[in-house]
Design a protein around this nucleic acid. Structure first.
Lengths: 109, 109
DNA sequence: AAATAATATCGTAATATTGCAATATACTTT
DNA sequence: AAAGTATATTGCAATATTACGATATTATTT
């Protein structure tokens, strides 16, 4: 089928999955790494950094923005994207719970 | 095309993207949540928890295992899956860098 | 060893994603 | 306002993912 049965899961699970899926591509991981280092970017920065076309990079930026991983865009004179910590923090907390759970009691060793 | 150009990215970026992609589906988020709470599971636990077929759940567990998010399986008498913190910790660190970067200096507000 | 139970795999249909050329849009400069 | 520059969108082909019925595999029980 190829259709994800989102309706069977909670809003939180879907939000989490969307954000994680947005990060689940090497180009988008690379864009986030670029933003960690440079704090902000314009589309052209990323285009000249990686061997992907301008259309492809623009699309990846769009997906990151839709998922709330990055924010910003063209605003009058200053065009820029930068990281948005809100959603990233939520994912981080979720993973933190997982790590805590493992530390509390391990199995399958 | 539909083919990800993995070869243009670093091993770290690809590993990170694979793990994040594995988590990027509500059913797999739900499975991880189940494991956070119950520490371990067998396939049947998840099948009876969610309205997805046994074949589909088995496939999701397989993907989580391939990405290193969970470990274990059938081992003699004890059949179980549980979280594997190694890869999860790596992702968490990556997200931590992103959050630190935003806290250090914000933009696009 | 046959039957039962639990999980994995195969095959397939429906849908989603990836990537890019071409084009459209928006802003800036001349 | 025309030309130039930067980014977004559209359309499309190739590939990947999702889901499940059917079946195979593996372990347990009778």
């Amino acid at each position: 089928m190829g259709i994800t049965k989102s309706e069977h899961f909670t809003e939180h699970q879907n939000t989490m999955a969307n954000a994680l899926k947005a990060l689940g591509h090497p180009a988008r991981v690379a864009i986030v790494e670029y933003l960690i280092q440079h704090k902000q970017c314009i589309c052209g920065d990323i285009v000249s950094e990686f061997p992907l076309s301008q259309a492809t990079i623009s699309q990846h930026l769009r997906e990151l923005k839709l998922a709330g991983i990055i924010q910003g865009s063209i605003e009058g004179n200053s065009k820029c994207y930068c990281l948005n910590s809100e959603v990233i923090t939520k994912i981080s907390q979720f993973l933190g719970f997982a790590i805590d759970s493992v530390n509390a009691s391990k199995c399958c060793d």
